[in-house]
Design a binder for these strands. Structure first.
Lengths: 122, 122
DNA sequence: TAATTATTTAAGCAAATACTTAAATACAAT
DNA sequence: ATTGTATTTAAGTATTTGCTTAAATAATTA
């Protein structure tokens, strides 16, 4: 693209950056995917609830979050598709819970949310 | 909505959840907003670069990320709108850098990305 | 002052998102 | 077997998103 013409553009720095970015490419891609999923108010609430309540069914979540069951179900599917949550069937009820391995990043964000001064976003 | 009819639905638990959610409502809203911004591959790369390079201009970012300048500029604006980043003008160049206060959450996520086993997302 | 460079803004558009409602599936109970 | 409950799936739709290109601003240089 070579859009920089500034003579004081540090060509070496930029080359370094490109190499650097390429190295973390897949890690960033995965992280952004996880953050994108958590970056939805409804889904973050679901994750928050699963973190505090251990396990909940779509029906309960629908109640608590005051949303239709299909809407909840579709969010759950997205989270399950990337293994952030897992499901366990008991009778005709399906209980969802956090998959602690993959949800680690998000759990750490949620952990201190109630007493969180770190969230200074406008 | 009252979609749960299961007799073993713990009504008290659900009421507790609702109260709980209401309490963290604004915190979750803010956090999801931040995560949503970071949950975009291009923006996460920008944040990663700003974290390692201290400050960069749209022009440099355009070079490194191989995207048009307007595309970069629009991402920067979104990040700036919520004060995750700030800008400093030097001549006709505008240098963007992380606003450590508001970017704290994200910085902590990026900090260990290169050696990150925590990101197990598919 | 005119041309160049860095950046933003605006308009347009294709793709993604998040809901809605209706239908399908699966299990349970009568 | 039939009805009822829990859930998912599918189709439709309005909104949002992230780019594109072109034009507008602003600062620098010739």
């Amino acid at each position: 693209m070579e859009s920089c013409i500034r003579e004081y553009a540090d060509i070496d720095q930029l080359r370094q950056c490109k190499a650097n970015i390429e190295e973390v490419q897949t890690a960033i891609q995965k992280l952004s995917k996880a953050l994108n999923l958590a970056g939805n108010e409804v889904r973050l609430k679901i994750l928050y609830l699963l973190n505090t309540e251990k396990a909940m069914c779509p029906c309960d979540l629908s109640d608590v979050l005051e949303m239709t069951v299909p809407a909840i179900s579709q969010h759950l599917r997205k989270l399950k598709d990337v293994d952030i949550i897992r499901s366990e069937k008991k009778g005709q009820t399906i209980f969802y819970s956090l998959n602690n391995d993959a949800a680690q990043v998000i759990i750490s964000l949620l952990g201190n949310i109630s007493t969180n001064e770190a969230v200074l976003i406008k």
